[in-house]
């Protein structure tokens, strides 16, 4: 045991050199925040993304790899609104990293800085997996993403003051491109206005809100509860009075129940990327919106 400290020092010194950083190390809880940080920070940041578009972020565990990455992070960017409540508090408390604790500039919960929809008036676990602060899947709100960009830039400048000028320039550039893209998406998605859809989980509410679409129901009887046959039958009955034109699931949801319902009510069943990386088209934030809207437009045509 007594030889351990010496051995450690040697190991540390050997590893410290290559690890010594010139850039800001960012731990992004979800791929959308990784993509946003890359937009604002460019090469100034090295970004580690903790989850993928194939994973249900509610259900992640505080794995050793996540704790190791959080340990050296200068900035942690998460969604918040209790989306990561099962794992991020533990990752932070186990990390031994004071820079990413609650209240520090190095810990950002984006949802706290953007308007949220579907804020419940009654909060009780009997209603399923509740998010008292509203729908946390904010990556599909163009306005939310713009506000997020502003906050991300602010935090980057706080943890890396030397890069302030860079971040400001890149934010201005992003804002311009994002504004243009938002206008383009509004035009592109115009045929979707008023279209009724059923989604698996409330992953895409912000996008529906933006495009003026109408959610007629969710496959999940309650948030976070897997579809049941009785609930799917209710959706079939409801189709007669309040018709949906397509059934939408995210890249991490099972195809089965969505396909089953879609075939019963005679509408297309489609998959949308849950976030960046969910489909080959969703390479970045712009691609995420482009691809999602295109997929819905295709389904609309296909459904006739």
């Amino acid at each position: 045991m007594k030889k351990m400290p010496k051995l450690f020092l040697v190991a540390l010194l050997a590893l410290w050199g290559p690890l010594a950083h010139a850039t800001v190390r960012v731990f992004a809880c979800e791929p959308e925040w990784g993509a946003l940080v890359k937009e604002i920070a460019g090469d100034r940041a090295t970004v580690y993304v903790a989850t993928t578009a194939m994973q249900d972020v509610h259900r992640i565990q505080a794995r050793p790899s996540l704790i190791a990455r959080a340990r050296s992070a200068d900035l942690v960017v998460c969604t918040g609104a209790e989306l990561e409540i099962g794992w991020i508090p533990m990752v932070r408390s186990q990390s031994g990293n004071e820079r990413i604790q609650l209240g520090k500039p190095g810990y950002l919960e984006v949802a706290s800085f953007v308007p949220r929809i579907e804020v419940p008036t009654v909060v009780d676990r009997a209603l399923g997996d509740m998010h008292p602060q509203g729908n946390p899947h904010i990556q599909f709100g163009p306005r939310q993403m713009q506000l997020a960009a502003v906050e991300v830039e602010k935090r980057l400048a706080q943890v890396d003051p030397a890069g302030e000028q860079d971040y400001r320039t890149r934010l201005a550039d992003f804002t311009r491109r994002w504004k243009d893209a938002t206008a383009r998406w509004a035009t592109l998605g115009a045929p979707l206005k008023g279209v009724g859809v059923i989604q698996y989980h409330k992953n895409f509410s912000y996008l529906f809100d933006f495009l003026g679409m109408r959610e007629t129901g969710t496959l999940e009887p309650k948030p976070g509860v897997e579809p049941t046959s009785s609930h799917l039958n209710e959706l079939i009955t409801q189709q007669k009075t309040d018709p949906a034109r397509m059934v939408i699931r995210s890249s991490y949801h099972a195809e089965g129940p969505a396909q089953w319902l879609a075939s019963r009510i005679g509408v297309p069943s489609i998959m949308l990327p849950a976030t960046v990386g969910g489909t080959p088209g969703a390479k970045d934030l712009f691609g995420l919106y482009d691809d999602s809207i295109r997929r819905m437009l295709d389904a609309l045509k296909q459904g006739g």
Binding site: L15, A68, S95
Partner: peptide, 10 residues
């Protein structure tokens, strides 16, 4: 103690 390594060592 967690050394600053790319893997988790506690």
């Amino acid at each position: 103690y967690l050394p600053p390594l790319p893997v988790y060592l506690q």
